[in-house]
């Protein structure tokens, strides 16, 4: 089990990526799959900073990674605003370029990349995002 806490700054993203890549490499995913998991983690952490904390600065992101023989489980914890993924409308990228809107792109990527995703908010104000990727 790997565990670390990072300040809620965008400059933490590269460090979080580096931290998670150790666990991801241990599972032995192919190069492209390993890369996509890092993308999903980056998208999730960006959403925490932007939406849960409302911007850089006030909070921390705790990241833990659990490695098994054929999967990695990544758990991200924050103390910002709770997140309900069902409130994010599914973006439509099959439109002409000028009508393209960005909202929801990160969440779509997370959903397409990871095999299991669970968002939970605890009564003491902690948000827990659990993501699993299997080989």
């Amino acid at each position: 089990m790997y565990k670390a806490t990072f300040p809620g700054w965008f400059k933490s993203l590269a460090k979080i990526s580096e931290f998670v890549s150790r666990a991801v490499n241990e599972v032995g995913f192919d190069e492209t799959t390993a890369y996509t998991v890092l993308v999903a983690v980056d998208e999730a952490c960006t959403n925490i900073i932007e939406h849960a904390y409302g911007g850089e600065g006030p909070g921390e992101i705790q990241c833990s990674c659990e490695v098994s023989e054929d999967s990695v489980t990544i758990i991200l914890r924050d103390h910002g605003k709770p997140f309900d993924p069902t409130t994010v409308p599914e973006p439509n990228f099959a439109v002409p370029l000028e009508q393209l809107e960005f909202r929801g792109a990160g969440l779509v990527l997370i959903q397409k990349i990871m095999d299991e995703i669970d968002f939970t908010s605890t009564p003491d104000g902690e948000n827990v995002l659990t993501m699993v990727k299997r080989k």
């Binding site: 993203l13 990526s17 890092l38 993308v39 370029l97 393209l100 792109a105 990160g106 990527l109």
Partner: peptide, 15 residues
């Protein structure tokens, strides 16, 4: 590495 935020910069520029 490029995240969706980076891709969005490319799309905004493309627009």
């Amino acid at each position: 590495f490029i995240s969706s935020v980076g891709v969005w910069v490319l799309l905004e520029t493309q627009k």
